[in-house]
Design a protein around this nucleic acid. Structure first.
Lengths: 142, 142
DNA sequence: AGAATAAAAGATATATTTGTCTTCTATTAA
DNA sequence: TTAATAGAAGACAAATATATCTTTTATTCT
């Protein structure tokens, strides 16, 4: 499992929120959880984290809910870093803390391009593009 | 984290055992754990799993210990599958169970080549090659 | 101002992964 | 054939990730 379950939920939630935002709508925890097939309370916690980390924004009270300031300037890597940190792009595949280009583990040279590609793909994909793909191709989130 | 901690330990342990096997030696749990920097009892459990799955072989009693039948015919993917299963090569990156080429999630087409490359790298790398790299380049396992 | 709405925050609960400890079984060698 | 060695197996413990529940705070609408 490349990403934690929390991070998987997070990406799906952000894409759903952004799809609403582009229609000028805010959306609540319950609807989000229903849309992405995740437990409501746990999803609330994740949305809280994303809001604290400025990936999403929220407002309380009637007509409140979650939204995203600028879907085109938030990239998947921002969500991944908010939830799981940067380690998946840097950590040694066999768990050696001191593994590096200078002192590589036996798998280092095989793994580097894979991790780099992962970072590149997450860095290049904006939430806005995800929403577009989502709407154009009848993609789904649960 | 691409691989579980158990799987990381497993790969390091198998490489260490194989390095001993090519010198016609068997090696015990305590020495293995010391060599790869892992907790002894937990390492015992992992070695047990690897033996049950035929990745390693073992014998009890004095002069007993772990060894590997044919390092050249065991590939990293065998260790990964023994410990973590096949999911890391197939599971949807955002956690959708029904994600497939026909009904892809918004990240499917980006992730496929990465997962394929991961599988290819693990499939092409034999334990014997790992040992060679390990010995030739002063690689390390902890 | 008061009631309703909705997220934030904190305390708990459950499940999984990681790690430990004790006993059992097989093997070897004296 | 007995003592020592070493893995196998099972019970238990700790840490982390996932999930739930309750209370608080902010906002809106009447």
């Amino acid at each position: 499992m490349i990403l934690s379950k929390s991070c998987e939920y997070a990406i799906r939630a952000v894409v759903y929120v952004a799809a609403k935002t582009v229609k000028e709508e805010r959306v609540g925890i319950i609807e989000i959880a229903e849309a992405i097939g995740s437990p409501v309370a746990f999803t609330g916690k994740i949305l809280q984290t994303l809001t604290r980390k400025k990936v999403l924004a929220s407002s309380k009270g009637p007509n409140g809910g979650f939204y995203i300031i600028d879907p085109a300037s938030v990239y998947l890597i921002d969500i991944v870093r908010a939830m799981d940190g940067n380690e998946i792009f840097t950590a040694c595949v066999i768990g050696l803390t001191t593994c590096s280009a200078e002192r590589p583990c036996p798998m280092h040279h095989q793994m580097k391009p894979i991790r780099d590609q992962l970072r590149i793909d997450f860095s290049n994909r904006s939430v806005y593009e995800m929403v577009q793909a989502f709407e154009e191709n009848n993609y789904f989130l649960k």
